[in-house]
Design a protein around this nucleic acid. Structure first.
Lengths: 381, 381
DNA sequence: GGGCAGGCTGGAAGCGCTTCCAGAGGTCAC
DNA sequence: GTGACCTCTGGAAGCGCTTCCAGCCTGCCC
């Protein structure tokens, strides 16, 4: 909604109000509370706060050298069990945590993995990230999230991960990685097309076929597709879900009609618009195969507003199995999103611990039949 | 090696398979593609890759000392304009980036901000995070995302941000911060209750009143509430949206009926269940005020399945203005989620640059009337 | 013209950690 | 009994950067 957050540049206090207002012009009056105490925090340069405990402290208290303490904590061999135990206990008591920065600097790991994500607030990406975060967390890794915008930005971000300075590894969410030369920084892609780097994804073509074959199997002969592409991610070659559409029609001996394919930017509202266009055709479709569930829901709104009933008049199928698909009784092709993220996380962890993450994983999808699809009303024609 | 990162927990390769399968038991057969080349990446210990350029390189090429180079790049005073220019140019050519780790270690900033988020895959949090990420990015800060689970985990995570070791600041997403003693690490909360630390939020009570007053204004007298709470975040005191319910009824002189309040865990399906319970009442409500849009959509499913029409038979209102609310024609109370995140990001940036982020900001909400609410059918009674 | 202020610059000391290297002490086989 | 060989531990050298402290040099005032 509203204004792009990124556009806001200035950060001085003087501009604060202005900034706030620029965030969303529709916000008239902000209520800024003034009276609350804000604690020590307000003073950036407060009294010299207690220095955080460091390895040396732990070592001293445990009666060993920093070297030994490091080894003990790091789980290295050649440390007497008793010593290790003692060091660990002291570290616990002091609630000591290694400084990733120092660790990294000294040749260790940063313990950090970057995720490059195009849209943070889309369910698909959020779920992917959720799975990824969980897996990384259980592997003791931190997640650094970087939003990437258009293709140029993406490429730049990818370039800007030079020699394990910032992170130990990178996960690219649902976009193609062209030239990756971060030789010593493992890269994993998830949700994108299979790649030369380790990947986790689904078979888009197969997923599309599941959707199309379902509609065809129900007896539909005039099937439209709403293809929704990321505005700044359109690539030359057609995506798998689109290929599936054509392939399925061809295989079923059904005619191809270019008018029945509406390509729009990704989004529910865009889906609604596309549906409106399709309804304007001389021979409107009896079924609609939408690129994703959100798009399908948009299409459904248009159909409802046009007084058409689902699935009686028109069948609609989506892809993803968005949590709201269940609530809206939408037939869809489920893809395991969270699991893809988790698997990517495991791959990264594996790679970082010196293992072989393998070339890639393709997870299966599954048709979930709900109430938005049914045989066409009129079998004639 | 092998143990490094994971050593703490024990993540040997041997367990990888097991882990993967544990991700989702329903995933029977993974298709693991075997034939793709995986590039240099497969070899964790490859040829000594080219060392990344560092400050010393830049300094040498620019013909100055590292000290001067640092000052020039850091924008410090007492550097001749020509020198600075030269250093900058060299740095550009070498596409040099400072190592945040080293920088931080030497007394500088990490340039990193942590976001503590309970549920990454819920729209609300994702949108919050999106706003936050944008603001941070434009301030040149990196976003570290930490998922926090239950209350205990939350407290622990909060404890575990000792003396600017990992991040420069922390943003807590939609939960209360009890004891924050990270004196030198600024903390900002967003989406939670107003706090003693700088916060960004909405007035939950007011939002609830907007929803309730709308229903009351339409003429509803038997209004139910579906209260959805985060399972591991339930607090003692009633939340604002619930208070609004009671307050609005009282003020309108309407009777309170505890049966009309269904409290469930957060979620669409839970909302559907709650609605089913409400429909089982002897006097079912003519309107439902749901804690959030997702919950409202769940309720709607139940109503539809019961053959009830919306809004003819029952009115439903949510809170949030989830993107799908528009598509499903759901009346709701909009809150600016992304903007809250962005503002929190600005506050953090302000605090980090030595400014005063102010005590807190409360953003206004707005009633958005769509097609899911209407006057009750029978004015009698 | 001498002296002094002040702008620029370089040297060097760490920040907190990992790891190489060396050494102490013990075990075991010859 | 002694050397070979471990296991365990400590010393010390950086990782790449910032910043304090000097020192140099210029410019300018008296």
């Amino acid at each position: 909604m509203g204004t792009d957050v990124d556009s806001v540049k200035g950060h001085t206090n003087a501009r604060a109000d202005e900034d706030i207002r620029r965030v969303d012009p529709t916000i008239g009056d902000l209520i800024v509370m003034q009276a609350l105490p804000i604690g020590a925090y307000a003073a950036p340069v407060s009294a010299p706060t207690e220095r955080a405990v460091n390895l040396a402290d732990v070592a001293r208290l445990a009666g060993v050298s920093p070297a030994t303490a490091s080894r003990a904590l790091g789980g290295h061999p050649h440390v007497a069990a008793a010593t290790r135990e003692r060091v660990r206990r002291v570290a616990d008591e002091l609630s000591y945590v290694v400084s990733p920065d120092a660790s990294r600097l000294a040749g260790g790991r940063t313990g950090r993995v970057a995720a490059l994500v195009p849209h943070l607030d889309r369910w698909y990406f959020a779920a992917l990230l959720d799975g990824l975060a969980g897996a990384l967390r259980s592997a003791g890794l931190d997640l650094l999230v970087r939003c990437v915008g258009g293709a140029a930005d993406r490429a730049e971000q990818l370039q800007r991960m030079p020699g394990r300075r910032v992170v130990d590894a990178v996960v690219a969410l649902a976009f193609e990685v062209d030239g990756w030369d971060g030789a010593d920084v493992p890269l994993v892609t998830v949700g994108g097309p299979p790649s030369t780097v380790p990947f986790v994804t689904i078979d888009d073509l197969a997923a599309g076929r599941q959707a199309m074959d379902h509609l065809i199997h129900l007896g539909h002969r005039r099937i439209a597709m709403i293809e929704a592409l990321d505005p700044d991610q359109r690539s030359e070659e057609p995506v798998g879900r689109r290929v599936a559409y054509e392939q399925a029609l061809a295989q079923a001996g059904l005619p191809q009609d270019q008018d029945l394919v509406a390509t729009v930017d990704w989004g529910g509202v865009e889906g609604a618009d596309a549906m409106a266009r399709l309804l304007g055709l001389r021979h409107p479709p009896t079924a609609v195969y939408a690129h994703s569930d959100e798009v399908a829901l948009g299409a459904i709104r248009t159909l409802r507003r046009a007084g058409l009933r689902i699935p009686d008049d028109v069948s609609v199928i989506g892809v993803d199995d968005h949590p709201l698909a269940e609530l809206t009784d939408l037939t869809t092709v489920r893809q395991p999103v969270r699991e893809q993220g988790a698997l990517a996380g495991h791959m990264v962890a594996t790679a970082l611990s010196g293992g072989d993450p393998g070339p890639g994983i393709v997870l299966p999808t599954q048709l979930v039949v709900r109430g938005s699809t049914a045989p066409p009303r009129e079998e004639r024609r």
